[in-house]
């Protein structure tokens, strides 16, 4: 991979957040380039989700900056960052439970198209939005569920819908936070296929928090390791997994107890 020209799709500089005396994310410097998939690994409580929250704007850092294509977005709201191309799927499913599956997706398409302030047409007749939503649902094999309320879906389908909402957003930077957590084995491939397709057919930037090492090995171009909020390793998957610091900080513990 040639070094990317000009600014990275996403960059964090000295990104830090403290909760009282506890440093949850500790001066993380990292850049993410288009066309790469970076896996973020680390033990529970290492600060992975907090790092995501700082990037996508759910939390404000104590210190440091978030840059999207070189532009400082640290002071912007989550909505403003989304409109600048950051997209996020949540670890804990985060849907519009009282709306139908199709409406959940249509709302995302509508946001991307900037049609939210349309007061005059009928939402159900905006075929441009509805058809695109249906296409996303078909791709995620959720078409049969499209008229069900999101809150009434089985857990696996809710996870799929969560990821489908991110897919419908078509951001420049995809942030997946344990997308396959709690899914049954036969549902996992749908999600992994989606991520693989994004990685292989587009020039998007993908960030993936994932615990399953086999998944990480399959998909990642690069692994970064967080430990106690700090970035402790960064590099090619094989190299990072083999590094002593990872063996000790993360994998080592798991193997010893296995």
């Amino acid at each position: 991979m040639a070094p990317a020209p000009s600014p990275p799709a996403l960059e964090t500089r000295d990104l830090t957040i403290r909760f009282g005396g506890h440093v949850a994310v500790d001066a993380v410097n990292c850049a993410f380039h288009p066309g790469t998939l970076t896996a973020i690994v680390g033990p529970n409580g290492a600060g992975k989700t907090t790092y995501f929250n700082l990037i996508s704007g759910q939390l404000r850092p104590t210190d440091g900056q978030v840059l999207v294509r070189g532009e400082d977005v640290t002071g912007l709201t989550a909505a403003a960052r989304t409109r600048r191309g950051l997209g996020r799927a949540f670890q804990l499913t985060n849907l519009f439970p009282g709306l139908t599956v199709r409406e959940n997706i249509r709302l995302v398409v509508q946001s991307r198209r900037g049609a939210g302030m349309d007061l005059l047409s009928r939402a159900a007749r905006r075929t441009d939005l509805v058809d695109e939503a249906d296409a996303v649902l078909a791709r995620m094999s959720l078409a049969g569920r499209r008229d069900d309320l999101a809150g009434a879906l089985p857990h696996g389908d809710q996870r799929k819908l969560e990821v489908a909402m991110l897919a419908a957003l078509e951001p420049d930077v995809f942030m997946f936070d344990e997308p396959t957590a709690g899914m049954s084995v036969d549902e996992v491939p749908t999600i992994l296929d989606l991520i693989r397709r994004i990685k292989e057919t587009t020039d998007k930037t993908v960030l993936l928090v994932e615990h399953k090492m086999d998944v990480v090995r399959q998909l990642a171009d690069r692994i970064i390791v967080l430990h106690n909020g700090a970035l402790v390793a960064d590099g090619e998957p094989a190299e990072v997994i083999a590094s002593p610091i990872v063996q000790e900080a993360y994998l080592g513990g798991a193997i010893e107890h296995a």
Partner: peptide, 8 residues
């Protein structure tokens, strides 16, 4: 979530 998908 409405905020997260880009609505102000």
């Amino acid at each position: 979530r409405a905020e997260a998908i880009g609505y102000r």
